[in-house]
């Protein structure tokens, strides 16, 4: 499973890096960015889903790998 942020939708609310600091971080202007290689370790799946479901802009997607 991977996470991705749509930079066109992100407006820097920061819910993703609040809720899942291991998966997301903020850039110099507060926009969310995917930290690391975007792969979600099994123990981070719950917070990844929280980040998705709490983003006010619906800017985050979880991509299930085949």
């Amino acid at each position: 499973m991977k996470v991705q942020i749509d930079p066109q939708r992100c407006h820097g609310h920061g819910r993703c890096y609040d809720l899942a600091p291991g998966l997301f971080s903020e850039d110099d202007e507060g926009y969310g960015q995917v930290a690391g290689d975007s792969a979600v370790p099994p123990d981070q799946e719950h917070v990844a889903r929280l980040a998705v479901s709490n983003c006010p802009e619906r800017a985050i997607d979880l991509v299930e790998e085949a």
């Binding site: 820097g12 609310h13 983003c55 006010p56 619906r58």
Partner: peptide, 18 residues
């Protein structure tokens, strides 16, 4: 746990002080 509230607005005017 799931709380997609908009207290700080939505879109380009998201509260800069949030």
């Amino acid at each position: 746990e799931v709380n997609r509230h908009v207290a700080f607005g939505l879109g380009i005017h998201r509260c800069v002080g949030s």
